[in-house]
Design a protein around this nucleic acid. Structure first.
Lengths: 131, 131, 131, 131
DNA sequence: GTGGTCTAGACCACT
DNA sequence: GTGGTCTAGACCACC
């Protein structure tokens, strides 16, 4: 099985696929140039309607994560050297704020969050020397 | 005006209210025991349907952030005791993963994320000695 | 009838809708803040599947031409003062090249193209004093 | 290499070939009577399926840009006599409208479009006295 | 009532 | 065989 989907989740299935692919790419499990499964293949694997997969793939293409080559399939894009634009940086900033707010309401100290994040980075699967 | 809402955002209005209240509480702008505005008051302030406010308050009560005392109003709950063990940590873990994944696709290094988060914690409005 | 669609055209129906709305906005026929017909309304008007209309509307929202306010409908966005970024400018440049190339193969001189374009601008419906 | 093709582009490969040939002809890089490469030659050059090249050549022949002489090869047609009347002008008209509409949504003034187009004409590679 | 999501199944363009 | 488009009809979240 290629990735796991929870059809009962409130987050849309196509969004779950987008997030999962983004995560695998970020972690290096899907290297640049790697071929993704066909829409129909994945639809059969996940027992999900092909249209839903197609929507996820289009979203990923729009995000610049994958690219479609007609008649050949879809592939992971090479990483962009582009520096983040201001509007996108604010999205990151917002995620960080949410992280600290949620931590507070779960009774977790900021220090613990910081330490856990550091640990997560250290264990990040992507080998640094290849980036 | 008590808090600002963007009706054009894709995130539901009731969710925006939930997030905003949680953030104010986490930052200490809403201290424990503080009284929140009435549903009707807030509905008038934000020119929003009272049902939407009610839904947000219910969500906040379920999250243990506020409590409703019949006939008196709604108040901010006392803070939970700090926890270092991972009871509900999976939600936090997921947020952290998303943070790093998004950063990767924006061309931002983990080190930068870590430094920015540290900075954000240092500037956090809530006084540390009180937690 | 709100706009006309040619189901036999090779250009996708949803794209025809996108182009038509963009054109009406550019010409001032759809002023900033104006309300667009409901997806269902337009679907009935054009005897087209609602999903197709929805796709067109989403595309327009992504392009920053319209915005959706939940439960209320879709509206024309205020014009953005943003200056064009380089990648988008090259798209314009490409359109101009195509214009001159097509003109050449139709036996039309560049001078005639220029004059016709000037004339088209003079007759442009949007009143200039309002921009 | 004769012309460059981007297999990742959303515009079909055969269409890219058509556009590229038309552009080279319009700019004078391919003079009237010039011989185009064989389908097989071009297919090898571009590492593209010969069927795709054939489709492009058919399209170009239908457009009156090139002509196939059996056993000899394919050649660029002589230019059409200049026309000032609007026989097939509707296509041009449509392109111009799209140009102005896109410019509007990119925040570019019609005056800028006009000036840029004028400049593009001045720099056009084909020698004017020969047309 | 609004748009957003998903399914099922069909047809087409491109390679 | 690949993805892209469209239809028909259903359910849900939000306001």
């Amino acid at each position: 099985m290629w990735l796991s989907i929870d059809p009962r989740s409130s987050v849309p299935i196509y969004q779950q696929i987008v997030d999962a692919v983004k995560e695998r790419v970020a972690k290096g499990a899907l290297a640049s140039g790697a071929r993704l499964p066909t829409i129909r293949e994945l639809a059969v694997d996940l027992t999900i309607n092909p249209n839903t997969i197609a929507k996820a793939y289009q979203e990923l293409e729009r995000a610049g994560v994958i690219e479609v080559i007609r008649g050949k399939g879809t592939f992971v894009c090479p990483p962009k050297p582009a520096v983040a634009a201001p509007p996108q940086m604010s999205a990151l900033h917002e995620l960080m704020t949410r992280l600290l707010v949620e931590a507070h309401h779960l009774g977790v100290t900021p220090e613990y969050v910081l330490a856990t994040l550091q640990d997560m980075i250290d264990r990040w699967p992507a080998k640094k020397e290849e980036e």
